[in-house]
Design a protein around this nucleic acid. Structure first.
Length: 197
DNA sequence: GGTGTGATCGTA
DNA sequence: ACGATCACACCA
């Protein structure tokens, strides 16, 4: 049994561009009632910035959907995409400043069905794997029954690559900004294989 | 009030 | 390559 050190809220009270790469290799943890504790290691994330970022939900200001992105750091920002899938983000920056990191893919470590390939590869699958829905929007990351949190399990810092973000072709010049951070060649990274980098 | 649109995924 | 499916953002 490894020691899980929860990331303090101060970890997220920093520029989104600092937090995003630092999250690759950290673990996501959730224990829901009557279920085994689920643990997975993040292998792919994307940074979404404020009003200047044409790919970000914050680009139109604090609209009802994006309001959580403008709130205090260390909370989940969850939304529904394409009417079907949920996407799970962690809010960064200080209260009042928009910024969030989209959690895109993770390697299952414990509590998931064994033998399933790439079970958490893709933001929709990652949110579904942890049972995260819109009802979790705005919830604080914390180690508590049924809550979700991010932790450092003492594993060494993984190799890191960056690329443009996925699925944001509508965003003009911002579509090409290298704001996707991932563990290159890791089997659980999302997207077509071999991944584009 | 009506309309267009996605930070995706599975199948063909 | 495409369809599923709907909250939300925008316009009127």
């Amino acid at each position: 049994m490894v020691t899980l050190r929860p990331l303090p809220l101060a970890f997220f009270a920093r520029p989104t561009l600092e937090v995003a790469p630092a999250l690759v290799g950290k673990v996501l943890v959730r224990r829901a009632p009557g279920q085994p504790q689920r643990i997975a290691r993040l292998v792919e994330v994307e940074a979404y910035l404020g009003a200047e970022d044409a790919a970000s939900h914050a680009r139109r200001g604090p609209t009802p959907r994006a309001l959580t992105m403008f709130g205090p750091p260390g909370r989940l920002y969850v939304y529904l995409v394409y009417g079907l899938h949920h996407c799970m983000n962690v809010v960064c920056e200080s209260d009042g400043v928009a910024g969030a990191v989209l959690l895109r893919a993770a390697e299952p470590l414990a509590g998931f069905a064994p033998g399933v390939r790439r079970l958490l590869s893709g933001p929709g699958k990652l949110a579904a794997g942890f049972g995260i829905t819109r009802s979790h929007d705005g919830s604080v990351l914390r180690r508590a029954p049924d809550a979700i949190y991010l932790a450092d399990d003492g594993a060494p810092t993984p190799p890191l690559a960056r690329s443009s973000r996925i699925g944001v072709d509508f965003a003009g010049a911002w579509a090409e900004a290298p704001l996707r951070f991932f563990w290159p060649s890791h089997a659980d990274v999302s997207g077509p294989r071999p991944y584009r980098g």
